[in-house]
Design a protein around this nucleic acid. Structure first.
Lengths: 338, 338
DNA sequence: TTGAAAGCGTTACCAC
DNA sequence: GTGGTAACGCTTTCAA
């Protein structure tokens, strides 16, 4: 790993006995050189092992060809699948993606925003985290397009790519009801969570009420989050109070899988004794035993879609619109039709 | 999203009626200005909403404060957990990370390497993909440090952060044997895979042989990869030939979970009828039913470790050494002690 | 304590 | 077709 000075365009020019301008033209496939010099220059570029410096390039044409993506947490399947789609779309557009892990409390978010600003990213994708007015204002000043995925903004006029959580939750519970369940509980995240908490509970409630089932607040149990670990405690609360439940709507795949896990501990069979429907439909859903029936969001394609909308915005210089993603229910084997 | 021209250091200088140099000094906390001017400049910076341009900065001090990370596939838990660690360590060092999804066939790898070279990244992390001589040679020319994680290089002298796969596999099978299993099968990925295929099979074989159990090649089944989907077919092959197996060593968590899934289909109870030990110990292991006993690699901390070693190399300008990670077996409930 | 100016590696305009 | 050169936004030496 020697650290020679890398050859610059100047070195190439000198070596090939042409001007810098000519080399630059050849590098950029513009016009203004003979085929002969082109070959000659290309050959010396090759011989010298020259590689253009994107930083210098970026300085002059004010382009970084880079976007920033913010995740509260990058270690789960949701982020992974989103990122997969985002990276895919970005690469085909010639953009690089910088990932930022903001931690869910959002303390680091502003720092990352500042960083991305300094690095001159041309756009920002905000995932799974509420975009507060403060953040929105900052990004507004950055004067680059933003888009939220699986999230939305306190500020309106910020485009978002997401499903309608209330409607999706409604449909999930409706599905349970259509399977003739009436004793339906819910495993939720914090009801105060504006993204995945409140709206999904609202959907649950609406479906229940509409089916003339009395709404019982104690049938929605929750802990601090949407992860497997959070499901354990929530399930126990729920089961202690309502051992007679025949179905559970879980607000995430991990909560659903956690419920499966806990149910087995109590000797419950799934779906015979207890039906469970999940939410997200990450890879985890198919890997569960039994395979999980779940509301599908399609994170990978949501990631791609968000990136594409962002690039459109970058090109046109306008913020553009978001897109409402259609959810659907993927039927597997965790729900019993009564 | 208006596109005003962002203020530059020049604007700040003019507005504050000082020289560019002074502003620069203040920005960089170097010496050579009075407290009064500092306050004044800081105030105008604030008023103008000035933000330094890292690209221009990078051009002059030849630093991008960025590293590149290559993943064959970014959508799984392994990448997610590695990335979590890498991002964490990078952020505390003031570095950004660009993620590259190379696709497992490695076709895009060289393209990404070129891209990273142009973007002047200061180091590269190569994950879960064999670093061929060709790639190594390219990186050598880039003159930046590399490190492989969960992988190694055809070229020696490239540091790597990984467990000893042969030894880990050996221990896993040894664990099964210590639980008094003798009819032990293996669910593998392709035996030709130099990373996670061959070495783990070798470990399995060594443990079997050493316990004086005859080695039967047909007891190691595999399909094209290490994912859940690949496990289905492999398990069926295995079970068709050897319904008498009492334990299975799976070369990944997903293969193990796939085995659990398939086993249930055949009416097998786990671990009563069939014991299964996994490999990786991603989040998936704890979410399985029953929770999976598995060889733990600790991807998040491997990611951190790799990043830290890389930064050391960047600082010292030398390639440095890798680190052998200690594996351990996390006991959960998928293995029965006979 | 401060400012002028060179230079980082490019691109793009203007001349020839 | 080709070359000279200003400019991108910044850091850093050198002088004052």
């Amino acid at each position: 790993m020697m650290r020679l000075n890398k050859p610059t365009i100047k070195d190439v020019a000198k070596e090939a006995k042409v001007s810098i301008a000519t080399v630059s033209r050849i590098l950029n496939n513009s016009t203004g050189y003979s085929e002969t010099t082109k070959q000659h220059v290309l050959e010396t570029i090759d011989r010298l092992g020259y590689s253009p410096n994107a930083i210098a390039r970026g300085l002059i044409n004010k382009q970084s060809n880079t976007i920033g993506v913010l995740f509260p947490d990058v270690s789960g399947l949701i982020s992974a699948e989103l990122l997969q789609g985002i990276e895919e779309a970005s690469h085909t557009r010639g953009f690089s993606v910088i990932v930022c892990k903001t931690d869910s409390d959002g303390k680091k978010t502003l720092d990352f925003l500042r960083l991305l600003q300094e690095k001159q990213v041309e756009g920002i994708i905000f995932t799974s985290q509420f975009l507060t007015k403060e953040f929105a204002a900052f990004i507004e000043k950055m004067a680059v397009p933003v888009i939220t995925v699986s999230s939305y903004s306190e500020q309106d006029n910020i485009p978002s790519v997401k499903v309608d959580d209330e409607a999706a939750a409604y449909d999930a519970v409706r599905y349970l009801i259509d399977c003739n369940h009436t004793e339906i509980g819910m495993l939720s995240g914090p009801p105060t969570d504006p993204l995945a908490g409140a709206p999904r509970i609202a959907g649950y409630k609406r479906a229940i009420l509409q089916a003339n089932i009395p709404y019982d607040e104690t049938k929605v149990a929750w802990d601090k989050g949407f992860y497997f670990e959070h499901g354990q405690l929530a399930f126990e609360k729920l089961y202690a109070l309502h051992p007679d439940l025949t179905a559970i709507f879980a607000a995430s795949d991990e909560l659903a899988v956690s419920a499966i896990s806990s149910a087995y501990k109590y000797g419950l069979r799934i779906p015979e004794d207890l039906s469970i429907i999940g939410y997200d439909d990450t890879r985890l859903a198919k890997m569960a035993s039994p395979p999980l029936t779940a509301v599908s969001q399609g994170f990978e394609s949501m990631g791609m879609k968000a990136a594409e909308l962002l690039f459109q915005a970058i090109e046109t210089g306008t913020q553009g619109n978001g897109e409402k993603i259609k959810h659907r229910i993927i039927e597997r084997n965790s729900v019993k039709k009564h």
